[in-house]
Amino acid sequence: MKKWLLLLAIIVVSGQAFAQQKVKDTILAPFFSHFQLRQSFQSPDAQQSPAQLQLTLPQQGAANWLVDAAASLTIGPMSCGPFTSKLVGEFHRNTLADSAQFNYQAGFNFSWYRDRGDNVLTPVWTGNLKYIRNITDTSNNLAATLNFTFYRSGKHILDMGRPGYLNNEHFTYQLTPSAEIQYQQVFPNDEQMQGGILRPLVDLSASIALNHKKTKGKLAAPSKMIELAVDYVNRYAVVNSTGNKEGYTKLFRPAVNYYFLNTNSSSVSLGASYNLGSDPLNGLKAQQFWLFALQVQL
């Protein structure tokens, strides 16, 4: 029942944000200041990570539904200077990939960023402390993650952690490499499998988009038309006392996204991606599948 309540909460709060756009207009205003909808908050805000909804076509089995989404609320009273804290809830369910994914999470997210100006590499730290329920292997988990990446901006240099523009804004590119360390304490039904996993990982994320022709008039970022994106994650469980024999794992995800709606504060796209590998913390078992999904980012 809890999982449905979490999903319902994500949908309701999403709908409220769609309708009202700003948390400051709601009863949550004294405590929370900003709502976001993405695929996950494990990585920094900069990374392209739209929530995914709709349809899978796995190698075996029939098509079925997919929800791969996360929502956050910024906690105003617990954010100060370069430090920002959020409450996050995540729901990852893919019913008929060869190995089903069914995982939900709730917890605390923080980020730390102190601006150092243009043309320099500025460190960005993102961390999470959260409870994870993995339905497919009936385990409860406590997890702590710490992600490190760089932000760099400035005209005529290679931007990182933000969109950059090429060829008179005909193209938009984004590079977001990051390193992360994850600690996962697993409490499965089988006490023999109880234990902890420590995983360092590297994540290389890049995209390039062909934009719609720029219109004259008011200043605006070029709106994307079609985008090629790739995300490659490589991890190794340097400590694993659970007995599940997890060692080296990876996730390779090239994708094509077609943007059909770009509003003032959100984008909606159709995405086709090939997924090869696993994501143990998010309950995705090692496999490969094609994914066609409606993608929303607020």
Binding site: A46, T84, V124, S153, P163
Partner: peptide, 15 residues
Amino acid sequence: SALSSLGFNGNMCNA
């Protein structure tokens, strides 16, 4: 205009 319509993401807002 919203900052997002000018291409701002989380890092750019922090900057």
